[in-house]
Amino acid sequence: MKGHASGLQRPAAGGELARVLRSIERFALAPASAAPLAALRIGLAAVLLLQAALVAPALFELYGRSGILQGTLRDVFARTELPRIGWAVALLAPLGVGEDPVILGTGVIYVVALAALLIGWRTRAAAVLAWLTHLMLMATADSTVYGVDSFANIFLFYLLWMPSAAAFSMDRRLGRVRGGPTPAARLGLRVVQLHLSIAYLASGLGKAASAPWWDGEAIWRSVMLPEYRQFDLSWLADAPWLAAIAGWTVLLVEIGYGFLIWPRRTRLPWVVATVALHAGIALFMGLVVFGAIMAVLTVAAFAVGSEPPGPAAQAGAAPG
């Protein structure tokens, strides 16, 4: 009887495993529209072009050896293990090409690549050039880099292999790429969604382990430090409870992100809360590029529809 009972249980266990594997396959590979990835491509390229316009007047001061960090001092702060402008200067020096043309050329290539990425023209090549030149600029002026630059570079790298040109692109219009739902689009979207969920959770838990985020001191410092101060908010000293509530709200949005942005019922409120959080950072701290990029990532990943049209297609598609 024991052998007979165990024999009956094995198919049930195997059936459960098969159901789990099918669920994982649907989650990761059910055909999806490339619209969210196209929104990511367009939004990221647009914000980086804005950043490039802001940086352009100080191009040589930031990246030249006679700029803000001069000579060997710049090399000390540079990420020497990554490709940087100094490598290109050394490579082209035998041809009589100086540093200034290399810096200018790198900047021009970067901007042209971002513009091509924006409209989806030769999208894969544009993504490669945008990612590589962005990486070179980051590595050369590492002392000016902060978290959003790393985020931007990571998501530019994702665009190297994601089918972001399959929607809203010149490549699609010209017939260079096919449209329609694909497993690759679903996989790319899941990578973006999981990356953001883990990043927000890690950020929120890191903040939660620090007392200043509970008593409002972190908010107070953020809006009062000279390098970030945009408005006179000194009156917060008379209402410390308001700064504390703001800190709790940040913790709630970031820690809850990975749990409450996935279910359909709470997705839209959490997208709105996250965008509002980054709009607040841009407004009250002046970190416009940071706020814009993080808002673009969340909107593209969770607010742009990914399900193929038609009830038959949607019946077998994974949620989100």
Rank of each mutant, 00 (worst) to 15 (best):
K2T: 10
A18D: 09
R19E: 14
R26H: 05
R26K: 13
A28K: 00
A32E: 08
A38Q: 08
L40A: 09
R41T: 03
V47W: 02
I68T: 13
V76I: 15
A78C: 08
E81V: 13
R84V: 00
I85R: 03
G86K: 05
L91K: 03
V97Q: 04
D100P: 00
G107C: 09
V111W: 09
V112F: 10
L118P: 03
L118K: 08
R122Y: 13
T123H: 12
A125R: 14
W131F: 15
T133C: 12
H134F: 14
A139C: 07
T140N: 11
T144E: 13
G147K: 12
N153Y: 01
N153T: 04
L156M: 10
F157R: 02
Y158G: 03
L160K: 11
A165I: 01
A166V: 09
A166E: 13
D171V: 12
R172H: 13
R172I: 03
R173T: 11
G180N: 06
R186F: 08
L189D: 05
G206E: 02
R221V: 14
F231Y: 15
W235I: 12
P240I: 08
L242I: 14
A244R: 15
I245S: 04
G247C: 08
G247V: 10
V250F: 00
L251W: 11
E254R: 07
G256Y: 05
L260N: 02
R264A: 15
R264L: 09
R264C: 01
T266W: 13
R267F: 07
R267I: 02
L268C: 00
P269R: 13
W270T: 01
V271Y: 12
V272K: 06
T274S: 14
A276D: 02
G280K: 14
L287W: 04
F290E: 00
L297Q: 03
T298V: 15
V304E: 04
